[in-house]
Computed example of a mutant assay.
Amino acid sequence: MHDASAPAELIHYENLGLCAPGDAPRLIRSGDTGIGGRVSVNPSGGLLSRGHPVGATGVAQIVELTRQLRGTAGARQRPGAKVALAENNGGQLAGDSAVALVTILST
């Protein structure tokens, strides 16, 4: 998940349909986004944990997803990972992302 800011992660939960509008805080509190939850999100800590390297953001996401699907993510491993989704966006246009990209990988 492209979490260039803490609120961005919440907004993207809703944009991707992981929860209803306004329910992102409840989704986090439920534990559903944890490694063993309904839908694991950013098990590596997300972009902010890496200092948000602009040029390497998308590559880091795909590397993490590949490790998850191969079962080589160590302590961050989502048990039985079969499908992975990367969401990346940039810029703002009228209060929304100017460009967005979703990549889905599967085993």
Rank of each mutant, 00 (worst) to 15 (best):
G36S: 09
A60E: 08
L47G: 01
R38A: 05
K82G: 03
S97Q: 15
G31D: 06
G34R: 13
L85P: 00
G36C: 06
G17K: 11
V54L: 13
V63F: 07
A86T: 04
G22V: 10
L69D: 05
V41W: 08
V63S: 05
I35E: 07
V41G: 03
D96Q: 15
G22Q: 13
V41T: 07
H2E: 02
A98G: 08
V102G: 07
H2I: 02
S49A: 11
E14M: 02
A84T: 00
V59H: 13
N89D: 11
R38H: 07
L48C: 03
A8M: 12
P43H: 08
T72G: 00
R76E: 08
L101P: 05
D96W: 14
A86N: 02
G80M: 04
G58H: 09
L105H: 11
N89R: 12
V63M: 03
L93V: 13
V102F: 13
H12G: 06
A4G: 11
A20C: 06
Q92F: 13
S97F: 14
T72P: 00
L65D: 00
G17W: 14
L18R: 08
T57C: 01
G34F: 06
P79K: 03
V54S: 06
P43E: 04
L16F: 13
S30R: 05
R29N: 09
V59W: 14
Y13I: 03
G31P: 01
G58N: 10
G51L: 04
A60T: 09
V102E: 12
G90N: 07
V39K: 04
D32G: 01
V102H: 14
E64T: 00
V59T: 15
N88S: 06
P7Y: 11
A75T: 15
I35V: 10
L10K: 09
